[in-house]
């Protein structure tokens, strides 16, 4: 064990002086994030709605065209819920970058906060989907040796922020490694 670690005993005084991750103020994602979520919801509903409309216009011999009105009502309800949910979802996401680690929270019902220390970072990548490109946004994906997929994905960061964060994160990672 190195010298530094010996400082860290189970002393109450030391524990109180630990930096508190629960007190950090989370920065929220880009204000366009709900819009992106709403567009995704729209697309998700549009595809089956269009399909059903075409089927009923053609009077296709499928059972579902007898329930088209129910289907439209369902889609409308889904869209309304989706609209509010998108805002809620975006409101409950946020990230905080500290000197040594990065925190990311997500989840409306199950609140989830993950902390990734920079010196455990394997690699970081920027990802731009078509919708994100439209809004000039990027997602930042951080990988530790934890699993096969990204341990932390921060969606909808303004491109400049995303690049800056990635550079800071990678610089801190290589400094501490």
């Amino acid at each position: 064990m190195s010298e530094q670690q010996i400082d860290f005993t189970n002393d109450d005084v030391t524990l109180d002086s630990l930096p508190k991750a629960e007190d950090v103020i989370m920065k929220s994602l880009s204000p366009s994030y709900p819009t992106i979520l709403i567009i995704v919801t729209l697309l998700m509903t549009a595809i089956p709605v269009i399909a059903i409309t075409i089927l009923s216009l053609l009077d296709a011999p499928v059972l579902i065209i007898h329930y088209t009105s129910w289907f439209y009502i369902g889609a409308a309800v889904f869209l309304i819920i989706g609209y509010f949910w998108s805002h809620l979802d975006a409101k409950h996401r946020g990230y905080a970058i500290r000197e040594q680690d990065i925190l990311y929270k997500s989840g409306v019902i199950w609140r989830n906060v993950i902390a990734v220390p920079f010196n455990r970072l394997q690699h970081a990548e920027l990802h731009r989907g078509p919708l994100e490109r439209l809004f000039k946004l990027s997602s930042l994906r951080l990988f530790t040796a934890g699993g096969l997929k990204a341990d932390m994905t921060i969606p909808a960061l303004p491109e400049i922020d995303a690049i800056r964060i990635r550079e800071f994160v990678l610089a801190s990672a290589s400094k501490s490694a």
Partner: peptide
């Protein structure tokens, strides 16, 4: 808090 401190100091 302890775990992050330990990782970051190690």
């Amino acid at each position: 808090n302890i775990i992050l401190a330990k990782i970051e100091q190690s």
